[in-house]
Design a protein around this nucleic acid. Structure first.
Length: 480
RNA sequence: GGCGCGGUCGUCUAGAGGCCUAGGAUAUCAGGUUUUCAUCCUGAAGAUCACGGGUUCGAAUCCCGUCCGCGCUGCCA
């Protein structure tokens, strides 16, 4: 029996990180138990829902690596947009009316508002007073036929409910916690607590993993499940992500959207990693992991119950770690494509190669741009920029250049990293220079640049003929 | 107000009665490495486990109360 887990966002804004995290948990659980991940669009609030937001949320999810098995455009339990399921909701609402579990309510909003305020003033629970509760069905239908608008209200059961929450354990709601509540608005649109149940049931959802703010809603949903004599799914209410002020993250603040972090340079692997550990812990206390690894260890018993404060500094660190990992594999493989087959890179003894690889990797991590790095290593052409000229014009530089020409005359492969050390020391002692004249001069001579990756790495990796060619051109520069 | 849920270093967390004079990570600080770098290494400091009572030979862990925080209390989701 495999699970079916749904993520049900409402398209009233961009995907924010709280939603992204919930989606991740749902996705992870679906994958962990070899089940299906379903995306349902809860767009029953027609004034705030926009197709554009739906698209951007799906995009952001995709960017994170969270793709749905069923949802808009695919799946057998569709449609997956609530706005396209309206007839289903009204049909089931009629069933409830006929069973006596719901009734038409003609009270106006202003009337309701007034009553609610009065009750609150007396410090009483602002429950619906039941004005329309005992209207006969015949009369209600007659009034509707006469053109009156009616909402449909659910008759709340007078009893306590309890259920076992996957993250919080046993939860009990006392009797009398809610009054009769609306399930279908007077304009025919369903209300969240109701369509959520209908859909979860019809879509055969096995696990509902959602944010803690929905915990109290569960009571109403439990009642609706009972009215249909349906066994509810498992519920898991995950703690909230809060801001530094410990308040619920507002969607209005720009820095809470997935898109914001993407634009900040956060890579998806890192955001996934960071978001998951905000409220869930790895069984081996690992800090850095990827989504595949997560799927293999993910379980529902490692959630934290208390709210988590978003810490941008840690996100930044996690991002850095993933940048490393990413470079370790893909970028290095990429670089190898550009390195000529006969390059010493492949021929040298193993130790040299390992050192070279780690050095090179590090440079690529720092500079991100592969092409840039390759340019530094393999382009023999010297571009005499003003910065380069300034260094070349320093007294010590010509000496360094001719010394290096001598050195390179006698070697077939670049010096080993350990030998680079000797070259630097020799130059230092021979010409009695140190500090920036020494290092900038060396850099200019070997790399033909005023700045760039670590000098020792560059000397150890740049092919001999490339360096020779550069030195020659610089020599020519002096001749002029 | 009512109801619900939480409360371990600044932050994310480990912890399921003795392994905890509370571990890790991050941030901070100090050293070192790197004459550039969205590096790296070492070390320090940082939590009377919200508070008060129980239960127990023994409690961060179990029970009760208090306080604080948050959530819900909509014809929003």
């Amino acid at each position: 029996m495999s699970c079916r887990v749904r993520f049900a966002p409402s398209p009233t804004g961009y995907l924010h990180i709280g939603g992204a995290r919930t989606a991740l948990y749902c996705y992870l659980w679906a994958r962990a138990c070899n089940g299906s991940f379903i995306l349902r669009i809860e767009d029953t609030d027609q004034s705030r829902s926009k197709r554009e937001f739906e698209e951007s949320q799906i995009n952001d999810l995709h960017w994170l690596g969270v793709d749905y098995d069923e949802g808009p455009g695919k799946g057998e339990y569709g449609p997956y947009r609530q706005s396209e399921r309206l007839n289903i909701y009204s049909e089931y609402a009629k069933v409830l009316i006929n069973k006596g579990n719901a009734y038409y309510c003609f009270c106006s909003e202003t009337e309701l508002e007034r009553k609610k305020e009065a009750l609150e003033k007396q410090n009483l629970a602002p429950h619906y007073d039941g004005t329309c509760r005992n209207l006969s069905l015949e009369e209600a239908i007659r009034r509707i036929e006469q053109g009156e608008r009616a909402a449909i209200r659910f008759k709340a059961y007078k009893k306590a409910y309890s259920f076992r929450d996957l993250v919080r354990g046993e939860i009990t709601f006392p009797e009398d916690m809610v009054g009769d509540f609306i399930i279908l608005r007077s304009d025919g649109l369903p209300v969240y607590n109701y369509c959520c149940v209908i859909d979860d049931y019809l879509m055969k959802i096995s696990h509902v993993i959602r944010a803690e703010e929905h915990l109290p809603n569960t009571l109403r949903q439990l009642m609706i499940y009972e009215s249909f004599a349906v066994t509810p799914p498992f519920f898991g209410h995950v703690s909230l992500i809060v801001g530094e002020d410990r308040q619920k993250l507002s969607k209005r603040r720009g820095d809470t959207s997935v898109d914001y972090y993407r634009k900040e340079g956060v890579i998806p692997e890192a955001l996934v990693n960071y978001l998951v550990q905000l409220g869930w812990s790895h069984p081996q206390e690992k800090d850095i992991y990827n989504i595949q690894e997560l799927i293999s260890v993910f379980s529902l018993d490692r959630f934290s119950k208390s709210p988590a404060v978003l810490d941008p500094a840690k996100l930044k660190w996690v991002n850095g770690q993933h940048l490393h990992l990413q470079n370790d594999d893909m970028v290095l493989a990429e670089v190898k494509k550009y390195i000529p087959e006969n390059h010493q890179f492949y021929q040298q003894n193993n130790e040299w190669q390992l050192t070279a690889i780690s050095l090179l990797k590090k440079q690529i991590e720092l500079y991100r741009e592969i092409n840039h790095c390759l340019e530094w290593l393999f382009n023999p052409q010297v571009n005499f920029t003003p910065e380069l000229k300034m260094i070349l014009e320093h007294d010590a530089t010509p000496k360094i250049v001719s010394y290096l020409q001598e050195v390179y005359k006698n070697i077939g492969t670049p010096p080993l990293p350990s030998e680079v050390e000797n070259i630097i020391t020799t130059v230092k002692e021979k010409f009695k220079i140190k500090g920036s004249p020494l290092f900038l001069g060396l850099r200019a001579a070997v790399t033909a640049r005023a700045a760039g990756p670590d000098l020792k790495t560059m000397i150890a990796l740049t092919p001999v003929d490339v360096v020779k060619s550069r030195l020659e051109q610089i020599h020519g520069f002096y001749a002029k």
